[in-house]
Structures are given as C-alpha cells and as structure tokens.
Computed example of a mutant assay.
Amino acid sequence: MAPREYGQYDGVTRALELVGERWAMLIVRDLLVGPRRYGELAAGLPRIPSNILAARLKELQAEGVLRRVPRSRVIIYELTPYGRELEPVVLALGAWGSKAMGEPRAEQVLTPDALTVALRAAFRPQVAADLPATAYAARLESAELLVRVDGPSLAVGRGDGPADLAFTAGPGLHRVLSGALAPDRAIATGVVEVLRGPGDLLGRFASTFHLAA
C-alpha cells in the first residue's frame, strides 16, 4: 500500500507522509533503542500484522529513514542518520502523550524498548547533574532494565546487574513519576517493591525522571 499523500506542500505534511502511517513511529521508537532483527521488531510490537510490519519497513527504507544491514549472517534494521534525527521528536511525543495516558487497559503491554524511550523522555539532566551517580535495576512488568545515571548522562540497558537500588513496580509507577504519589507512600502501599538497596533512593529516581500529570 502506497503511503498517503495529503496534497499540501510544507514540512509537517511531508513528515506525516513519511512516518505518519500506522505503526511507523513505533518502529522508529524501537529502533532508536538499537538495531533490531525482523523477529525482534515483531516481538516488540505484538499486535502488528506481519504484512503491515513488512510494508512499513519497506516504506521507511525507501524514504531513507532506516536501512537493512547484513550482520553475522542475519539481516538487521537500523536507523540512518536521517532517521535518528527523529529522536527529539519521538521523545517530545512521549512526554506530551504521557499527560493523557490514564490507567492502563487489561490488554495493554509495556515492552522494554517502549520503557527505555519513556525513561529517556522523562529524564531531567539538569536535576541529575546535581545528584550522585546512581544505578537502578528496574523490573516493570516484563521489562527488566538497568538504568545508570551519571550527572547529565543516562544509559539504559536490558537485564539486571549491580545497582544502588533494585525495585519492581507496575503501572502505578507512573503516579510516582508524575508526582501524584510520594515515593515513600508508594513503597508503603506496595505500588513499588524494593528488592535491594535503600528505599529512599526511590525519591532520587522520581526526581531524576519526571512525567507530566
């Protein structure tokens, strides 16, 4: 299916023609985290039909947003430099959209790549610059991330590892990061469970990552 054309001549229109088709921006979101094989992209977008994923990849490749690269006998997809220019756009969309998230529906999932981008969108480097370097091991639903904050620098990777604070939480963490629920209250009520490390570091986490209510 050919991408739609709006019949207008301006940058916003052209951008929507390039990445405005359904699922396109979510593919870009996941590739901002790192290169992915076709199967990894499909696993990270569990509701996308295979024919739509193939079509979107072909369209985005044709427009120079991503490319196919052979690596270790497999084909991976990665963003081009032109495609990576979408990062501040995706992060701004994530911050804007978080204001209207509400409570999650039963069928909604949180993937590791989506959570990684959400943390990037919520990161406040100006606050982190004045805090000690801290590592967090966060287990949120099926996503396990190791989050390292060192001054204004942020690194997010999958898996567990040495951390100053390890915790697990559900969707209620959104209330903590938006300021609707105090960190100590979140721990006391079981919204956040501390696995190891001092619980008061959750307050540092909440000040470092902030989502608008």
Rank of each mutant, 00 (worst) to 15 (best):
R124D: 15
R185S: 11
L79R: 03
L201Q: 02
Q126S: 13
L31H: 03
G102Y: 00
S98L: 04
E40Y: 04
V147R: 12
R68P: 07
D200I: 05
R71K: 13
G97A: 06
N51D: 14
E87W: 00
A166N: 04
P198I: 01
R36T: 00
M25P: 01
E107R: 08
G197N: 04
A143V: 13
G172H: 09
G203Y: 07
G102P: 05
L57H: 02
R204W: 07
Y136S: 15
P88I: 02
E40V: 00
S207H: 15
M101I: 12
D10H: 11
P49L: 03
Y38L: 01
G199S: 07
A100T: 13
R196W: 04
L110F: 10
E17Y: 00
A15V: 03
R22M: 07
K99Y: 14
S50K: 14
R22P: 04
V156I: 13
E21K: 08
H210R: 15
L119Y: 14
V19A: 09
E144V: 15
L115D: 00
R175W: 11
R196T: 10
R105Y: 09
P132V: 05
L173T: 04
R124T: 15
T208D: 00
A114H: 13
A143F: 10
A43F: 10
E5C: 08
P112S: 06
R4P: 08
S72H: 11
M1H: 09
V109W: 09
Y6M: 01
V19C: 04
E103H: 14
V147M: 06
G157V: 14
I48Y: 07
A100F: 11
P171H: 14
G11D: 09
A128W: 02
V117E: 01
Y9P: 06
Y38F: 05
A95Y: 07
L146C: 05
V194Q: 03
A106I: 10
A138L: 15
Q126W: 12
V33N: 03
A2C: 06
I52W: 08
A182Q: 13
L91E: 05
P152I: 09
A143W: 11
D200R: 10
D10I: 07
T111M: 08
P183G: 02
M25R: 11
R4W: 07
R139A: 14
S207T: 15
F167W: 01
G39P: 06
A129S: 13
A62K: 12
G179M: 08
L57A: 05
L211P: 01
A100E: 12
H210S: 15
R175N: 12
P104D: 02
D150I: 03
R71M: 12
H174W: 14
H210V: 15
R68T: 10
F167T: 06
I75C: 12
M25A: 06
D10G: 09
M1A: 09
I48G: 01
A212E: 15
L154R: 00
V192E: 03
G44K: 04
R73V: 02
G179P: 02
L110N: 02
L16W: 00
